[in-house]
Design a protein around this nucleic acid. Structure first.
Lengths: 341, 341
DNA sequence: TCCCGCTGGCCTTATATTGTCCCAACGGAT
DNA sequence: ATCCGTTGGGACAATATAAGGCCAGCGGGA
């Protein structure tokens, strides 16, 4: 859907196109949350319930919606109209233009932008997760090795992973052993969750970042650990969330002095325990085990996810270090990136 | 403006797109009739005056309209948005699709369709005239010879001809002398009017269709007549209206027997005094003087105009005889042509 | 110059939309 | 079986919007 026609329409009748965007957005949201009711929709779309009701009545009359006691569902006709609606809401929010600009500016294979700002609306992160999950499954092939990081962003992807639709024999690995965070956002937990959703298998890597050389040596002789590390180096697809250096450094239980050291060397972005400066230079890596900063450059398919305007500089830093096939961010991050670049 | 996006929008929200179409149509109409008021607009667009008023208020708020005591005018912004509005109303009425279909079906260089049906609304003919006039001036170059037929369609073109905007040294000729109709729709009158509008010169051809061989011979030795006929054969651009055979035959003062003869030979369409069968075969020509049916094939640029569903079969007949660069018809004719072909 | 017809603006009334609250019913979890 | 949360639908008042008619002012034609 080219943007020129829509621009013309928006200039001629901004009010009508705004209505149009809302209608398309409602349809899109219903498809993502079905079966769903007016109240839930009004929360997600930040619109008065009455307005949602009016729009839904309209969509219902037009035959796009099937209503049940449990909520509203897309009818067959609605499903058919969905792709168009998706493109529409995207283009009308100006996100297509943003995506193109960022694809060039960041030298990424493809940038996908989700509407909203995760800093203000936690739901946006989930939507980003849904989108990343869709693209990820499209990328995966039978027999591939998928490596994932920890963090809330990847957790959102795991949660949104389509469950058992088509079983894929995928081997899912954690990018590192890191035990610094809550269990439900650790890489190992997420690897297991994603593997279960896909119908594949997973391995774990119980190697803390802060580990004595002796202990490390002892762990490395264990067959499962060696096997997992070996598999890591044959990663086909890598999925990670991008973090802010200061936040990530603080959340890993590093000595205060070391944190200051990392930051004083200009670290702004983090990915898989590696810290990058604003120019994309690798300035620190948290552990010897797992994918090193240099190895990130070797992975065939790199998918990154980040949400929130606050992560803009971190995203830029990581993008500059190595090439990404896909970057999923939210509108807040996207606009901020455009602003500071 | 590609039609796919608009189709998608129309499917998703037909009501909004209808509003959009109306708004664009109002803008377009104002540009054609400016300065103009609500009442005139409501007549032309067949909408309640109050609705026109609402739309205009909206357009005014958006800065597309400049209001004066003498009526509404397009502002600079409005003029800038006009091309888009034009394409829009065209595409949303499905006329673009129709044009493409007819261009192929009739093997014409280009088909232009004006909304409405001249059979029901005389204003449509004027609009067709305006459109043809625009395209005609775009076709003309300094020093060219333009030949025109008579009839109400060409009269509408003459009336809508932009007056004295850029003076063109064009020589305008009547396609034949024909004295069968009212003065103001005779070819000579129209040639004069168009020449005056363009700032060129014109010649006349006072040779009645029904003339005795002796009288004809006498006329043909007159220098002005010979000179005009010579110029006719160097026509660069030919503009004519397409007529229905039965109507045209009756309006020219032909003997009753001859009329029946022409029609019995299957004549359905007429152009410049030549009668064509449904298959495009030339079945009769009214006069020895002027452009013969065969000569029509030699003219570099042929522009035809016809309005009204009732002329559908006549248009098809003429189109089949020789190639046209441009055909301007109204929506009524266009849809009827599609139906009967 | 004057007058007629046209224009946009304004005021009043009718209608549609919106905001708010409630309700009966269904589903899922306990 | 029962309870809780959520669903769509309905009712109704407040408000915004649309419709209709009237009027003053300006411009073109006589």
């Amino acid at each position: 859907m080219e943007t020129e026609t829509l621009d013309c329409l928006s200039r001629l009748a901004p009010d009508l196109m705004e209505d149009m965007r809302q209608r398309a957005a409602v349809l899109e949201r219903i498809s993502a949350l079905q079966p769903v009711g007016r109240r839930a929709l009004s929360q997600r779309l930040r619109l008065p319930e009455r307005e949602i009701r009016a729009i839904c009545d309209r969509l219902k009359d037009d035959g796009f919606l099937a209503v049940a006691a449990s909520g509203m569902t897309l009818s067959e006709k609605g499903t058919a109209a969905l792709p168009g609606a998706r493109e529409l809401v995207h283009a009308l929010s100006g996100l297509s233009t943003l995506e193109n600009a960022l694809t060039r500016a960041l030298n990424v294979g493809r940038v996908c932008i989700v509407p909203g700002n995760a800093d203000l609306d936690p739901e946006v992160l989930h939507e980003a997760g849904r989108l990343a999950a869709r693209h990820l499954t499209a990328l995966l092939r039978d027999g591939m090795t998928l490596t994932v990081s920890g963090g809330t962003s990847v957790a959102a992807v795991a949660q949104a992973m389509p469950r058992g639709t088509h079983r894929l024999n995928v081997h899912v690995l954690p990018a590192r052993g890191g035990l610094g965070m809550a269990l439900e956002t650790q890489a190992g937990t997420l690897a297991a969750e994603i593997a279960r959703a896909l119908g594949g298998r997973h391995s774990l890597l119980h190697v803390p970042d802060q580990i004595s050389p002796d202990a490390l040596k002892a762990l490395l002789v264990m067959p499962e650990v060696r096997e997992t590390i070996r598999a890591l180096h044959h990663t086909d697809v890598l999925l990670y969330g991008i973090g802010r250096a200061e936040v990530m450094a603080a959340s890993r239980s590093l000595p205060e002095a070391e944190i200051r050291g990392i930051l004083s060397r200009g670290a702004v972005g983090e990915a898989v325990g590696n810290y990058f400066g604003a120019d994309g230079r690798l300035v620190f890596q948290a552990s010897e085990v797992g994918l090193s900063g240099e190895e990130l450059r070797q992975v065939p398919h790199v998918v990154a996810i980040a949400a929130g305007a606050i992560k803009a500089r971190a995203v830029i830093a990581v993008m500059r270090h190595h090439h990404h096939e896909l970057l999923v961010i939210d509108e807040g991050a996207a606009r901020e990136i455009m602003k500071v670049m």
